[in-house]
Design a protein around this nucleic acid. Structure first.
Length: 268
DNA sequence: CCCAAGACCTGGCGGC
DNA sequence: TGCCGCCAGGTCTTGG
């Protein structure tokens, strides 16, 4: 579920409750996430920072870090320690403040690892591409990556080895913003169109973060509140409705396995 | 190397 | 109400 804006919203929501606090206890009620959860005893460890890389969250200790992914249906919330746990509340990190960070994830596609060494060397992070909001992610970079690829440009945007954090919602939105048809083969993208696409990605993600992310069903930020970008979506979930730019009915289709929506008139 | 499809899970929804 | 099939924000793995 969560794409970069939702993960970033979560990070900002929980960080104030975590940074400078110590872990009092870790309670793992369900180890069967994407990979089996195996954590060392973290009691007494101080959380120095809460960072994000791609769609991963990183809780840094003086030595080591927790690496967490929310998968499709995961969320993190700050609750009072000892708050009753529901069926899908798989992990609690109890803090010395009397609060806990609770990981909830019905589909269990999320993950939680303890990293003893440098996070960037971990196999889950090692091969990741650029952060979309970094200066390095620009038209020249995207153009160079697009050249040899025959996949639809939408796939390229969602390829974490190229650029991270963009999932199905924001890929659809950014392509509409840039006026590019999702099915266009990546290698046919001109350099100027790459520039336009990069700009649209940055604008879309920045706006989504400003609105606290997109809640379709069950996403909540660290404070338990949903995101409000859903009302700002221009194409995702709007197949058959009029394009906000030209009023033509939006087309709903499939690219690979994923739902794709675009405007036949203003996306070429 | 590139690419498409399958796999992993649960829950909500529409249709009958 | 109940059951059934389909769909969902991700991404690793497999096989061609």
């Amino acid at each position: 579920m969560p794409e970069l804006p939702e993960v970033e919203t979560t990070r900002r929501g929980i960080a104030p409750f975590l940074v400078g606090r110590r872990i009092a206890a870790v309670r793992v009620r369900e180890t069967r996430l994407r990979w089996p959860v195996e954590l060392p005893d973290l009691a007494g460890r101080e959380i120095l920072a809460v960072e994000r890389r791609a769609k991963y969250l990183l809780l840094r200790f003086d030595e080591g870090a927790l690496l967490l992914h929310l998968g499709m249906s995961g969320s993190l919330r700050v609750v009072g320690s000892g708050a009753a746990a529901g069926k899908h509340d798989h992990v609690d990190l109890d803090l010395d403040s009397g609060r806990s960070v609770r990981l909830t994830d019905p589909r269990r596609f999320g993950s939680l690892h303890f990293l003893a060494d440098a996070p960037e060397r971990h196999w889950l992070l090692r091969d990741l591409g650029l952060e979309p909001l970094s200066a390095a992610f620009d038209g020249a970079y995207l153009h160079a990556k697009a050249r040899r690829r025959r996949v639809p440009v939408k796939h390229l945007l969602m390829d974490a080895r190229v650029v991270v954090g963009i999932g199905n919602i924001y890929a659809n939105e950014a392509l509409h913003g840039a006026g590019i048809r999702p099915s266009l083969k990546a290698h046919r993208l001109s350099r100027p169109r790459c520039e336009a696409l990069v700009a649209a990605v940055k604008e879309t993600l920045t706006a989504a973060i400003r609105h606290g992310g997109t809640t379709l069903r069950d996403f909540v930020g660290g404070d338990g509140r949903p995101g409000y970008f859903r009302g700002e979506l221009k194409v995702y979930g709007r197949a058959g409705e009029p394009c906000v730019r030209c009023s033509a009915p939006l087309v709903g289709t499939r690219t690979g396995q994923r739902a794709t929506v675009y405007c036949r008139n203003c996306q070429r």
